[in-house]
Design a binder for these strands. Sequence first.
DNA 1: CATCTCGGTTAACGCTCGCTAACATCGGGA
DNA 2: TCCCGATGTTAGCGAGCGTTAACCGAGATG
Lengths: 208, 208
Amino acid sequence: MASSPAAPASTAAALTERGRQKADRRAAILAAAATLFAERGYAGVTIEDLGTAVGVSGPAVYRHFPGKAAVLAAILEGASRALLDGAERVLDEASEPERSLRALIAHHVDFALGDADVILVQDRELEQLDAGARHDVRLLQRRYVEHWVDVLSRLRPDRAEAELRVRAHAAFGLLNSTPHSARIPGRRPADGTIRGILEEMAWASLMS
Amino acid sequence: MASSPAAPASTAAALTERGRQKADRRAAILAAAATLFAERGYAGVTIEDLGTAVGVSGPAVYRHFPGKAAVLAAILEGASRALLDGAERVLDEASEPERSLRALIAHHVDFALGDADVILVQDRELEQLDAGARHDVRLLQRRYVEHWVDVLSRLRPDRAEAELRVRAHAAFGLLNSTPHSARIPGRRPADGTIRGILEEMAWASLMS
DNA sequence: CATCTCGGTTAACGCTCGCTAACATCGGGA
DNA sequence: TCCCGATGTTAGCGAGCGTTAACCGAGATG
């Protein structure tokens, strides 16, 4: 799950100059890949495209990832982990369920509006992963959903967990709608306005 | 937009035996393609797969569609048209805006639960279309959204159309959530139950 | 200072897949 | 009945693309 050959354990960060450059390149490839995958789909992007997007060309990408699928896997695992970590951080700070739900919603909106490309790829390209990576991502997603279900079941103990799970998924669809529709032309309201609308709608739908 | 060489105009339906067989084949290919595209993505399905799925093999598909892209285009245009036609039919029957909105929601849920594969493909593979077909589909989608916005603006004349458009898109994301999450294992409630939950959530979110 | 590692280059292989060609078969109108 | 057009079949081309091979220069290391 970590790096390959006996990584310098804890002091991994302050390595040499080359070490940081490599990390930067890797991050740049991931960022460019998210944008390109969102625009053209995983299959519509070539390894050469990924290289060109970060200023190297072609097979240099293989110095950072073992293959094209690994790039997608890194994006999806990163997204799932970021979403999950954020949710757990947010839940540590608020114990009252109403506050917790509002915080969960706000955090999800932040992510959806901030990393729209990643959300799009996450929604669309999960199936392209090999069984192992797909399973890992699904596990992270499941844990994320369960946090939502936990909070919801404290707010509405009368409702079955199965219903709350359907409601959580529906809320994700609602909150992720902007990355999907943003590609359609037409003027949209400012991000701040959209954020308010989505938070209000998500709350109302979940508590209805 | 219709058939090629001087089609027998109005009496097109009651043609010969061969005519009906051809129509059946075409419909079978479209249905199989929707399922396969939903499972593996447009790029993950070969023309050979499409043929095999309906009992013919490989290039026989070209007797019914000029190419792979045309199959996708037919699915997406069919879906957009069905959604739009249904909405217009529904709006003809109810003039009161509250009833209209409830009917629009119910109709959309019907479609999402009944043609989950098509909804999934519609959400994911629009970009794979060539510019012309994509434009056509976008036009149909736009008209569909505008029907929702019209009804919403009669219910909430205080709100800007831009906001209502964001709300409509968010509601679509909510209503289309089940086709997306259905692939995740785990027991789900029965369709009837899900329908009720989604309708309630959509209404609450739009009117909040 | 010699050497080794590593991130980069270009060339090329091989597979997949959309699509076309050439040919067979058969239903249906004159 | 006879022929034409439509719907299949199999063989094969050609392009695109993921990946590997072979080589190179420079920064870290002893």
